[in-house]
Every structure is written in structure tokens, then in C-alpha cells.
């Protein structure tokens, strides 16, 4: 019995050690994050590079889509110019830029398309490629994706 208790206390100590190491890592990473004073007060929109950069991303994204046999059919009958404008507006709002979104809701746009999870994730891959071609850094890409991810449920299987 003593042995079992001993063993469990060793296990518990081990777990404690590993968890505390992980949280120390988390904490120090957060500290590094907040110590990047330059970025602290600027919005994601500014860090991405503002309006011109968002337009570049949207242009690249349309290029990616037009060369993708799997995703292109969804856009075959779209007004590409309008799509680009509304996408830039939306990215601007999501990144806390000085814009207002004037387009239809994501539900309105995607209803009837029955977008599968597979095609949705493929489109995310294309959007990542569009950001990479626009020279957006990996961490900034993730922060924009995080904002965009919140609209996923409004698009899938509608």
C-alpha cells in the first residue's frame, strides 16, 4: 500500500513538473508577445499592411481559385469584381481596419452551394497560398485565419 502511494506521488510529481514546464513556456511566450511593444497598439489590419495588402491577397486568392479545378466551379458564375471588393471589405473588418462590410451575410452568399468540409478546407489552403504569395508572415496568417474561422459554420453544408 505504501508502495502504491509512493508510486502515485512520484507520478503526480512528474505530471506537476511537466505541466508547470508547459505553463512556464506558455507564460514566457505570452510575455514575449506582449513585449513586442511596436505591435501592441496597432491593429491586425495595420500589421498586415493595410488596404493595398488586403487587395493583393484578394487578387492572389482569385488567381488560386481560377486555377483550381476542385474549387473553381463554385465561382464559375460569380461576379469576380464584386467578390473581390466584398472580400477585401470583410478582411478589413475582421482585422479591425477602418471599413464597413456592405455585402450579403455569409449565410445568404453560401446557401444552396452545399459546401463540403473537404472543399472548405481546400479553399482555406488556397487562401493560405494567397497570403504566402503576398508575403504575409506565418504568425500574421494565423491571426487572420483565426478571425476568418469564426464564419465557418455560416458556410458549411448550407
Amino acid at each position: 500500500m505504501t508502495r502504491v502511494n509512493e508510486r502515485h506521488s512520484v507520478n503526480a510529481r512528474c505530471l506537476q513538473l511537466i505541466l508547470s514546464a508547459f505553463f512556464t513556456l506558455l507564460f514566457s511566450a505570452c510575455t514575449i508577445n506582449s513585449s513586442q511593444g511596436m505591435n501592441k497598439n496597432s491593429t491586425l489590419y495595420e500589421q498586415l499592411g493595410g488596404q493595398n495588402k488586403l487587395e493583393e491577397i484578394a487578387d492572389n486568392f482569385v488567381d488560386e481559385i481560377s486555377f483550381d479545378a476542385q474549387i473553381y466551379p463554385y465561382f464559375a458564375n460569380s461576379n469576380i469584381k464584386r467578390f473581390k471588393n466584398k472580400l477585401v471589405e470583410q478582411l478589413c473588418v475582421m482585422s479591425e481596419g477602418p471599413c464597413q462590410y456592405s455585402g450579403d451575410t455569409m449565410e445568404q452568399v453560401h446557401t444552396g452551394m452545399n459546401i463540403t468540409e473537404r472543399d472548405f478546407n481546400r479553399t482555406v489552403d488556397l487562401f493560405i497560398a494567397a497570403m504566402t504569395k503576398a508575403g504575409i508572415s506565418h504568425p500574421l496568417q494565423n491571426r487572420l485565419l483565426k478571425e476568418m474561422a469564426q464564419t465557418r459554420d455560416q458556410m458549411l453544408y448550407k
Binding site: A29, N33, P139, L145
Partner: peptide, 9 residues
């Protein structure tokens, strides 16, 4: 968690 630590997933 997307972008959770300094923008890293």
C-alpha cells in the same frame, strides 16, 4: 488554437 502564442498555432 489558431495564432495562440505570438501568432503561432
Amino acid at each position: 488554437h489558431l495564432g495562440a502564442i505570438s501568432g503561432y498555432n
